[in-house]
């Protein structure tokens, strides 16, 4: 039994709770959203307004000049093209190898499956480390070739385990059994039964691997020497972090040059991040699914 007095007390509690909740929500939205919004606005603003701090929320002195400068820059274009190649080829290799490993390991009837799982999982918790891996890649002659960007990271064990869990838990075993009795071989089973039913997990894998390739810089930093092979992130590093920017026309004065270098930073951030952010709405509905499958113990 509840008295109306108690009820009132509770609804008051509820209101306070809601108020606190919405205040925190608003603060979080500002905290996360503002820096993103500012970069977008600054990229469309007159460089002088940006440098002198007049841009706060919306673009000041709207201009597309910084974007024009970026588009005219060959260094950035070559980096962009390389990154597109590394991302597509790399993700393709990742998908093929991950599927080829995840499917057999998902079959509990495979003799040796437990040992093989241990063999694979152990590498998540112990690794040779940076130096031995570096020396290996060097010895394989992959140094300063595109292979250094594609092969050493060909399988991410975590993703492999996620995909294996999906095969085990989301595809009815009876389907495979009846196909087997019809004389369907394993390659065909994988290709015509398993993969068509695995679109959500494949989408998640494209996202995980693809974004990984797009954003990676460290392997490029240690393995690549030729500038023609550099991915976008290394070019970004020069512009954003090392401040080595030979951007803009040669005749302009020092202050203008600094100004241009400053303004290009924002547009370069936007241009480099746009492909990933464009992919995002399409794959977003698979996020929860993908992350959740990963949490299931194998």
């Amino acid at each position: 039994m509840q008295s109306s007095n108690e009820n009132k007390l509770r609804s008051r509690d509820d209101k306070i709770f809601d108020a606190v909740l919405y205040v925190i929500t608003a603060l979080l939205l500002i905290l996360v959203g503002y820096p993103l919004l500012f970069v977008v606005s600054a990229s469309f603003s007159n460089p002088i307004d940006v440098v002198e701090g007049r841009v706060w929320l919306l673009p000041q002195g709207f201009t597309l000049e910084p974007y024009k400068l970026v588009f005219e820059n060959e260094k950035i274009w070559s980096g962009y093209a390389n990154t597109v190649f590394y991302a597509i080829a790399g993700t393709f290799i990742n998908l093929v190898l991950t599927v080829l490993a995840a499917y057999p390991l998902s079959r509990r009837d495979l003799p040796g499956q437990q040992f093989l799982m241990f063999f694979v999982t152990f590498t998540m918790f112990f690794s040779g480390g940076l130096i031995p891996t570096y020396l290996l890649v060097k010895n394989l002659g992959m140094n300063n070739t595109i292979w250094a960007m594609l092969i050493p990271g060909a399988i991410a064990t975590y993703n492999l385990i996620v995909m294996r869990s999906f095969f085990q838990n989301s595809i009815p075993n009876e389907l495979q059994e009846s196909a087997w009795m019809d004389g369907c071989n394993f390659f065909r089973m994988l290709w015509s039964i398993i993969l068509p039913l695995s679109k959500p997990i494949l989408a998640v894998m494209v996202l995980f691997y693809g974004v990984g390739h797009w954003n990676a810089y460290f392997n490029a930093l240690i393995y690549l020497k030729d500038r023609e092979l550099f991915p976008l992130q290394l070019i970004l590093r020069e512009i954003l972090i090392l401040n080595q920017d030979d951007m803009g026309g040669g005749d302009v004065g020092m202050t203008e040059r600094v100004m241009l270098a400053e303004s290009i930073k924002y547009s370069v951030i936007i241009i480099s991040s746009v492909p990933v952010l464009l992919l995002y709405p399409f794959i977003q509905r698979y996020f929860v699914k993908g992350v959740m499958i990963g949490s299931i113990k194998g």
Binding site: L97, T98, L100, A101, Y103, P104, L105, R107, D109, L110, P111, L116, F119, V120, T123, F126, S127, G128, G129, I131, P132, T133, L135, L136, I151, P152, A154, I155, N185, F186, F187, L190
Partner: peptide
């Protein structure tokens, strides 16, 4: 199930080469 082992062939080679050889490489 030989086909399943066939599928595993390249991934296992990869694991040996890029994960276990560096573990051996720790001897340096």
């Amino acid at each position: 199930r030989y086909e399943l082992y066939l599928m595993l062939f390249i991934p296992i080679i990869w694991y040996i080469l890029f994960k276990y050889v560096p573990m051996y490489g720790i001897t340096i």
